[in-house]
Amino acid sequence: MNTRWYCTDCETEIDREEIDDHESEGHHVKGMLRPERLLSNDPWTLGNEVSDEQ
């Protein structure tokens, strides 16, 4: 997973080490998680494709 942190008060992306500094100033910090690889739109179709090959 990739994690990105944003300070909504500064409207900038921040490093993980800067979270405490921003929060101590009363800023709101928001984290966004993104998987390293994306799954197909319908994960159930992948299961059907695998079972059809056998």
Rank of each mutant, 00 (worst) to 15 (best):
E11Q: 09
D52T: 00
T3M: 08
L39F: 11
W5A: 15
N2M: 14
H27I: 04
G26M: 00
E11D: 12
D9N: 15
N2W: 13
G31S: 09
G26S: 00
G26Q: 00
D42I: 01
M32W: 10
Q54P: 05
S51L: 05
W5I: 13
E17C: 15
E53N: 01
R37L: 03
S40C: 05
H27M: 04
T8K: 08
G26L: 00
M32P: 01
I14T: 05
W5Q: 13
C10T: 03
V29F: 02
C7Y: 11
S51F: 02
D21M: 10
R4I: 13
I19S: 09
L46E: 04
C7Q: 08
D9Y: 10
K30R: 13
L39K: 11
T12M: 09
D42H: 03
L39S: 14
P43N: 00
S51C: 01
E53C: 01
R34V: 03
T3E: 13
K30I: 12
G26A: 00
H28G: 08
I14K: 08
C7A: 06
E17G: 15
H27S: 03
I19V: 13
E49R: 12
D15L: 14
D20G: 09
V29T: 07
G47H: 02
S40F: 02
C10Y: 03
E18H: 10
T45H: 06
P35A: 07
V50M: 04
T12V: 08
M1C: 13
E13A: 14
D42C: 01
M1W: 11
L38E: 12
C7T: 07
M32N: 12
E18S: 07
E13Y: 07
H22Y: 04
E23A: 13
L38G: 05
T12K: 15
I14M: 07
E13N: 12
H27F: 01
K30C: 05
M32T: 12
G26Y: 00
